[in-house]
Amino acid sequence: MINQNNVADEFVAVQSDDLTVRELDSICVNESQLEHKWYHNLKYVLVGIAFGIVFVKAEIISWFRIQEMFRFQSFHMYGVIGSAVVIGVISVWLIKKFNIRTIYGEEIIFHPKTFNKGQVIGGLLFGLGWAITGACPGPLFALVGSGATVIIATLLSAIAGTWVYGYFRDKLPH
């Protein structure tokens, strides 16, 4: 308790370097300076469960739905992504407008993305993979849970792809 401030300061200093690495090519960086016991992560498991159920029940994880989307044969996926973005935009606007804080009282931080060529080249590549496998990373996890065990192979391969990207990252155009 007594040294809490000092500890926090040191923690920030050590973290800054680490955060720089973690921030590379990523959207979700944990910027919270709070340290929690492991069981605090259970709430993210719960959000994940809700999310996974929606994924399966709305058939977003279906290869067929993704094919329909890319062939303009169904509105379903456009409706899902579009309405999710609308709710997301409104939520973020409300959070900023009313300066809503986290349940721990921390200020909510948004970090701007900088543009690089990766968003174009990587984006096109991901589109290619998405159309073939019919799954983006989230659905891969839900598919495995839903009993499509062969998707474990797809997931492991995607992790391998991530690793290979990390290996060649410095040589790729950005």
Partner: peptide, 18 residues
């Protein structure tokens, strides 16, 4: 396909969710 998804999303810095 999975490999390309993993490589591409990281290169792009995020996927459909991010």
């Amino acid at each position: 396909g999975g490999f390309i998804v993993g490589f591409g999303t990281r290169y792009a810095g995020g996927c459909t969710s991010g």
